[in-house]
Lab assay of single mutants.
Amino acid sequence: MSIQHFRVALIPFFAAFCLPVFAHPETLVKVKDAEDQLGARVGYIELDLNSGKILESFRPEERFPMMSTFKVLLCGAVLSRVDAGQEQLGRRIHYSQNDLVEYSPVTEKHLTDGMTVRELCSAAITMSDNTAANLLLTTIGGPKELTAFLHNMGDHVTRLDRWEPELNEAIPNDERDTTMPAAMATTLRKLLTGELLTLASRQQLIDWMEADKVAGPLLRSALPAGWFIADKSGAGERGSRGIIAALGPDGKPSRIVVIYTTGSQATMDERNRQIAEIGASLIKHW
Results as ranks from 00 to 15, higher is better:
24 H>G: 09
26 E>P: 06
26 E>N: 03
27 T>S: 09
27 T>C: 08
28 L>G: 07
29 V>D: 15
29 V>E: 01
29 V>Q: 03
29 V>F: 13
31 V>F: 04
32 K>Y: 07
35 E>C: 03
37 Q>H: 07
41 R>F: 03
41 R>M: 02
41 R>T: 11
45 I>L: 11
45 I>D: 07
46 E>T: 05
46 E>W: 09
46 E>Q: 09
46 E>H: 14
48 D>K: 13
52 G>M: 01
53 K>H: 01
53 K>F: 13
54 I>N: 07
55 L>W: 01
57 S>W: 02
57 S>A: 10
58 F>A: 12
60 P>Y: 01
61 E>F: 14
61 E>Y: 08
63 R>I: 11
63 R>D: 06
63 R>C: 09
64 F>G: 12
65 P>L: 11
66 M>Q: 08
66 M>K: 13
67 M>F: 15
68 S>N: 01
68 S>D: 09
69 T>E: 03
69 T>H: 03
70 F>D: 04
71 K>M: 01
71 K>E: 05
74 L>R: 09
74 L>W: 06
75 C>V: 10
76 G>W: 07
78 V>F: 05
79 L>A: 05
79 L>V: 04
79 L>Q: 12
82 V>M: 06
85 G>Q: 03
86 Q>A: 10
86 Q>K: 12
86 Q>C: 13
87 E>Y: 06
89 L>K: 01
91 R>V: 10
91 R>L: 09
94 H>R: 13
101 V>N: 05
104 S>I: 02
105 P>Y: 14
105 P>S: 04
106 V>K: 00
107 T>E: 15
107 T>I: 07
110 H>M: 01
110 H>N: 03
110 H>K: 15
111 L>H: 01
111 L>D: 01
111 L>I: 05
112 T>G: 10
112 T>P: 11
112 T>Y: 01
113 D>T: 10
114 G>L: 07
115 M>S: 01
116 T>R: 11
117 V>G: 02
117 V>L: 04
118 R>W: 15
123 A>R: 00
124 A>M: 03
124 A>I: 13
126 T>R: 03
127 M>G: 11
129 D>P: 10
130 N>I: 01
131 T>G: 13
132 A>R: 04
132 A>I: 05
138 T>V: 06
140 I>L: 14
141 G>D: 02
142 G>V: 12
144 K>A: 10
144 K>H: 11
145 E>H: 00
145 E>F: 10
145 E>Y: 09
146 L>G: 01
147 T>R: 15
148 A>V: 13
148 A>S: 09
150 L>I: 02
153 M>T: 11
154 G>R: 09
155 D>I: 06
155 D>Q: 13
155 D>K: 15
158 T>M: 01
159 R>V: 10
159 R>M: 11
159 R>K: 03
159 R>W: 07
160 L>I: 06
161 D>E: 06
162 R>D: 07
162 R>W: 12
162 R>E: 09
162 R>M: 13
164 E>K: 15
164 E>L: 14
164 E>V: 12
165 P>H: 05
166 E>A: 11
169 E>Y: 07
169 E>I: 01
170 A>R: 02
171 I>S: 06
174 D>K: 04
176 R>Q: 09
176 R>L: 00
176 R>C: 14
177 D>M: 06
178 T>H: 13
180 M>R: 02
180 M>G: 00
181 P>Q: 02
181 P>I: 09
182 A>T: 10
185 A>D: 06
185 A>L: 03
186 T>Y: 03
186 T>E: 03
187 T>E: 01
187 T>P: 04
187 T>N: 15
188 L>I: 11
190 K>N: 15
190 K>L: 15
190 K>D: 15
191 L>G: 06
191 L>Y: 07
192 L>M: 13
193 T>S: 03
194 G>S: 10
194 G>M: 08
195 E>G: 09
197 L>M: 00
197 L>D: 05
198 T>V: 08
199 L>I: 07
200 A>Q: 14
202 R>K: 06
202 R>L: 10
203 Q>Y: 04
204 Q>V: 12
205 L>D: 14
206 I>F: 15
207 D>I: 05
208 W>H: 10
208 W>F: 12
209 M>F: 06
210 E>F: 08
211 A>R: 03
211 A>N: 00
212 D>E: 14
215 A>Q: 14
215 A>H: 14
217 P>M: 00
217 P>K: 15
217 P>R: 09
219 L>P: 13
219 L>R: 12
220 R>I: 11
221 S>T: 11
221 S>L: 03
224 P>A: 07
225 A>V: 04
225 A>Q: 03
225 A>K: 00
226 G>H: 03
226 G>F: 13
227 W>Y: 00
229 I>Y: 04
229 I>D: 07
229 I>W: 06
230 A>C: 10
234 G>D: 11
234 G>M: 11
235 A>D: 08
235 A>I: 10
236 G>M: 14
236 G>P: 12
237 E>F: 15
237 E>A: 10
237 E>I: 13
239 G>L: 04
239 G>Q: 03
239 G>C: 02
239 G>W: 06
240 S>L: 08
241 R>T: 11
242 G>E: 12
243 I>N: 08
244 I>L: 13
244 I>P: 10
247 L>V: 05
248 G>L: 04
248 G>E: 09
250 D>I: 02
250 D>M: 05
250 D>W: 04
252 K>P: 00
253 P>L: 14
253 P>R: 09
256 I>G: 15
257 V>W: 08
257 V>Y: 06
258 V>G: 14
258 V>A: 11
261 T>Y: 08
262 T>E: 09
262 T>S: 13
263 G>W: 08
264 S>D: 07
265 Q>G: 11
266 A>Y: 15
266 A>M: 15
266 A>T: 15
266 A>P: 15
266 A>F: 15
266 A>C: 15
267 T>F: 09
269 D>Q: 05
270 E>V: 09
276 A>G: 08
282 L>H: 03
284 K>R: 07
285 H>G: 06
285 H>A: 04
286 W>L: 06
